[in-house]
């Protein structure tokens, strides 16, 4: 009987520490999920005479992918996106974050372009409004332009199969 209380304390400490092993401190909850995508008015990488706003998200489920040519893991992730783009009918918008226009254009030419358009966010202000703190980041927006999901860091095929694809199909049918 006298061991019960120390045992409970010991076990709950072990439990707490064990659970925290699996926590990822770099994965922060997004403030944006459930809210409309913040507005912007920026040029695109493809055409510096045309402006694009958040109106582009309306009417289809959008995959908003934030990338930069200086980001090594974006390159790896890009292979996955190219593959998914060929297999599925997805609507992707790119955000080129804090980058050089020429390098961004070359990057798309060399690595392939799955994006409907790529927003050129040279100053990183769109990134700031969207709470971007480490590229690549991916947002999924519903047909009304409301943010439904946010992913920090690169995606992979497993995540796509288990989470992203079901979510997109679900949003497409609602």
């Amino acid at each position: 009987m006298r061991f019960i209380i120390p045992l409970i304390i010991f076990l709950s400490t072990v439990g707490l520490l064990w659970k925290s092993l699996a926590l990822k401190p770099t994965e922060l909850p997004s403030v944006l999920v459930g809210h409309p995508a913040p507005s912007f008015n920026l040029k695109t990488v493809e055409d510096s005479t045309k402006n694009v706003t958040e109106a582009i998200f309306k009417g289809h489920v959008t995959i908003l992918n934030v990338w930069a040519s200086w980001c090594a893991s974006c390159k790896k992730e890009h292979l996955v996106w190219m593959d998914l783009f060929k297999k599925h009918n997805i609507f992707m918008i790119g955000v080129n974050y804090s980058d050089d226009l020429k390098e961004a254009q070359q990057w798309l030419q060399k690595e392939g372009n799955p994006y409907h358009i790529t927003i050129f966010d040279k100053e990183g202000r769109l990134g700031m409004d969207y709470g971007v703190y480490g590229v690549p980041e991916t947002f999924i927006l519903d047909k009304e332009g409301i943010v439904r999901y946010r992913q920090t860091g690169p995606i992979n095929t497993q995540l796509w199969q288990q989470l992203l694809l079901p979510l997109i199909e679900n949003l497409n049918h609602s």
Partner: peptide, 9 residues
């Protein structure tokens, strides 16, 4: 999971 950070600045 933090994959890339900006280099210029």
């Amino acid at each position: 999971m933090l994959a890339g950070t900006k280099q210029q600045g």
